[in-house]
């Protein structure tokens, strides 16, 4: 029994009939082209699927599409504005905050959440704030640098 939903993703509204069991992450990935949101685990530990749901970071593998009905989702594809990278994206690039890139979309959106609450975080704050996101490549160090760098860039704006 499918259920109609209307979910706005990166500013565009999508009306779909979905199975209630469909996870939000699969809804997003099946829209066509929006595959930046990743699935890295089964148990909501890795954070690769992190998106912003009405501006708030959530793990889209632990949310049903029907729960997001009427909501606005921002994925990694929606972070840059008119072709200009978000300062977090620039910072991850500048500070070599990624290697294989698989955790990166989730990591950037989790960092977005972190800076929303704490625009001037210490390294310890950043490390604590990213505890829900796993990266196997970087050892986190350059991610911490990137978030700190982005915080500075955002403060200058």
């Amino acid at each position: 029994m499918k259920v109609p939903v209307n979910i706005t993703v990166n500013g565009r509204s999508y009306q779909r009939d979905v199975e209630p069991r469909q996870l939000l992450v699969h809804f997003i990935r099946d829209l066509g082209g929006l595959t930046g949101t990743k699935v890295g685990c089964d148990t909501s530990q890795c954070g690769s699927c992190t998106v912003l749901l009405d501006g708030v970071a959530v793990k889209s593998c632990s949310c049903l599409a029907v729960q997001a009905d009427g909501a606005a989702v921002t994925t990694i594809e929606g972070l840059a504005e008119q072709g200009t990278l978000h300062p977090l994206q620039e910072a991850f690039w500048d500070k070599h905050g990624l290697q294989c890139g698989f955790c990166t979309p989730g990591m950037i959106l989790a960092s977005h959440e972190l800076l929303r609450h704490n625009p001037d975080p210490s390294d310890a704050d950043i490390r604590h704030g990213l505890e829900g996101n796993l990266c196997r490549c970087t050892g986190y160090q350059n991610i911490v640098r990137a978030v700190r760098h982005a915080a500075d860039a955002l403060a200058e704006k």
Binding site: R29, G32, T35, G36, T37, K38, I76, E77, P105
Partner: peptide
């Protein structure tokens, strides 16, 4: 220098196997 791989990875446009349809 900054990595040439990164623009596609930080914007979500990179294509991993599971991203293909």
């Amino acid at each position: 220098i900054r990595r040439r791989e990164d623009p596609r990875l930080i914007t979500g446009s990179a294509t991993y196997t599971d991203d293909l349809t």
